[in-house]
Amino acid sequence: MIKSYIKKIISVLLIPGMLVISGFQEKGSIYTCRNGQASFQSDAPLEVIKASSKNLTGAINISDRSFSFLVPTKTFEGFNSSLQKTHFNEDYMETDTYPNSTFKGKIIEEIDLSVPGTYKVRAKGKMYIHGVENDRIVRCDLTVSEKKIDVTAAFTVFLADHNISIPSILNQKIAEEIKVEISFSLTSADN
């Protein structure tokens, strides 16, 4: 009887203890990034359009390899004219209605991101652009060093996948397939 009481007491003490410990572990296992870069290029027969944003933010948890990234769509700069940027925000991306583009999910490969090295991984998750969510797998290059993870990735986004419609008069000037490049550095949230 006494033994079982002791066990109960231990379990009562242990559980909050574990919670605290796991809380600590989680804090150390989260890496974040504030000013990541996202750029895109539309390569149409008659015109090339480029724009980029330095406002990509994101976080990754190296203990379960989950991640979440966000770019405020309005922050893209570049374009060939200021009117083109206005059309990007007003007519195509509708940034008043859909302010953010996001990618959330998990790294498929079961790698330990606390070990320095370079890794080629696949990030699987939901890509949310222009109010439409798609399941995507994106290949990424990771360089892990002390308390820092550098990430680069290149992928394409089909306008049709995200319900972005281009007037037929412009289909020689805006590509249906947009090349996207992402690069950012994540640092440990402890710092």
């Binding site: 989260i30 990034c33 994101g58 976080a59 979440s68």
Partner: peptide, 9 residues
């Protein structure tokens, strides 16, 4: 994770 990302923006 989402909250963290939101707060970083």
């Amino acid at each position: 994770l989402d909250q963290i990302v939101g707060s970083l923006t």
